[in-house]
Every structure is written in structure tokens, then in C-alpha cells.
């Protein structure tokens, strides 16, 4: 059973044990428009919370994606290379970016849950 947490930069992290799936939220993909390229990190790379983990590019913008928590990359979504549109079509499903092995479960506490993120989105615009 996984739990999903969110950051203010619109990354989501879906946690299952000590491994978590990271991607960008539906709100983020809608803001970006058509995603044309995702630059993913290499396998085995470690990040501290808040470090740049990936770059997502739309036709006219490039945005950095930050690690929601510290961890090591154990898998990347190589399907995005040939099909970046997956980020637009299914950002929390097939459009995920990386799987991280979490090094500090405590960091999850600082992130928003579903309800808090929904409230946060209402404050934008």
C-alpha cells in the first residue's frame, strides 16, 4: 500500500516501503504544456532533498525537477525517452520519472498529503 506526498514545486512521491516513485503532478504537466523531452539522472546517482534530479522540457520552457527527499536512483523511466507525451497523458502513472531508495524516511513528514496539496493548489492562480 503506497502513500503519495507532494511538494510545493509540484513533484509527487509515491512511497512503498523504502522505495518511492517520483514524478510531476497533473497540475504541473498542465502548466508546462506539451512535454517534449525529459532529462533523467543516471542509475545509482544519489541526491539530497531539494537537489535537481531531472529537467523536463516543453516546447518553450525548461523546468527543473527536484528530489522531494534524499535517496539513490534505483530505476529510471526509460520509456520517456521515446514517448515524452506520457508525462502529459498520465503524469502519475506511466509518466513517472525515477524510483528512489529513500535514505531518510523522516523527510517525508515535511511533505503535503493529498488534501493539503489540493488546498495549496487553490491558493495559486
Amino acid at each position: 500500500m503506497s502513500t503519495i506526498r507532494y511538494t510545493k514545486d509540484h513533484e509527487y512521491i509515491s512511497v512503498d516501503g523504502d522505495v518511492a516513485i517520483v514524478g510531476i503532478t497533473d497540475y504541473a504537466q498542465a502548466q508546462l504544456g506539451d512535454v517534449v523531452f525529459v532529462e533523467l539522472p543516471t542509475m545509482g546517482k544519489s541526491f539530497k532533498k531539494g537537489e535537481q534530479a531531472a529537467v523536463v522540457e516543453s516546447v518553450k520552457a525548461a523546468s527543473e525537477v527536484y528530489a522531494p527527499v534524499s535517496g539513490e536512483v534505483v530505476e529510471i523511466n526509460s520509456e520517456l525517452e521515446g514517448a515524452p507525451a506520457l508525462v502529459n497523458e498520465d503524469s502519475v502513472g506511466k509518466g513517472w520519472f525515477v524510483k528512489l531508495r529513500i535514505t531518510d524516511q523522516g523527510e517525508l513528514g515535511a511533505l503535503m498529503d493529498e488534501a493539503a496539496y489540493a488546498d495549496y493548489l487553490k491558493t495559486l492562480d
Partner: peptide, 12 residues
């Protein structure tokens, strides 16, 4: 592929 260029990526 203009996202590589200065007017979007600036210092990157």
C-alpha cells in the same frame, strides 16, 4: 530544440 538555448535556459 530551442530549450537548449540562452533565451530559455539562461545561465544553463
Amino acid at each position: 530544440l530551442s530549450t537548449r538555448e540562452q533565451h530559455i535556459r539562461r545561465e544553463k
